[in-house]
């Protein structure tokens, strides 16, 4: 009898310990991954960006400033269901291209979700689409917002 009581107490202790150590890693991410490829081919190219601005916000996108990239990760605005990015490029590495400005408007759904009582809410982003873009062409490779996705959008530049 005493043995059973002790086992029960130990079980309750461990179960409650597991509850306390709940990991608050949700499944939601607002990241999208872009890949710049050369128009007419599928070859990735490097693009020299002065900055990326977001419409409705005075400051340039703080993560992107004066950098050369072929792949890029951006995050969409969780407070809205569309985000407008303005790309200011000053040159490409192989062919000179000064002062190019492109616009990309993305639409998506934002659904609040309670991860758990302890962890609180997060946003689930889904159904990525484009409303407008000024690049040569664009392909949606993956419309789901997933951390493990390599490329969401392929931009023909």
């Amino acid at each position: 009898m005493t043995k059973r009581i002790i086992i029960s107490i130990i079980t309750i202790f461990f179960v409650s310990a597991c509850v306390d150590e709940e990991l608050c890693t949700g499944e939601g991410t607002n990241e999208i991954k872009l890949l710049f490829v050369e128009s007419g081919t599928e070859t990735p190219i490097e693009v020299a960006l002065d900055s990326i601005a977001v419409s409705g916000r005075p400051e340039n996108y703080p993560l992107i400033a004066d950098t050369i990239v072929s792949a890029l990760t951006l995050t969409v605005d969780p407070a809205r269901t569309l985000t407008q990015f303005i790309f200011y490029a000053k040159s490409k590495t192989d062919t000179v291209m000064f002062g190019r400005i492109d616009t990309l408007i993305l639409s998506y759904n934002v659904t609040p979700k309670l991860i758990s009582v302890q962890c609180g809410p997060e946003f689930i982003f889904s159904d990525l689409d484009t409303l407008k873009f000024t690049f040569d062409s664009l392909q949606i490779v993956e419309s789901h917002f997933l951390l493990e996705v390599e490329t969401n959008l392929k931009i023909y530049y």
Binding site: N30, P62, L63, T75, D77, P78, A79, T111, P112, L114, G120, P121, E122, F123
Partner: peptide
């Protein structure tokens, strides 16, 4: 019904009611 706020390092705090 859920009202709350979610913090994003890029976009700051977003308040919502769903």
């Amino acid at each position: 019904k859920m009202t709350g706020k979610v913090f994003d390092k890029q976009w700051g705090t977003t308040y919502f009611t769903s």
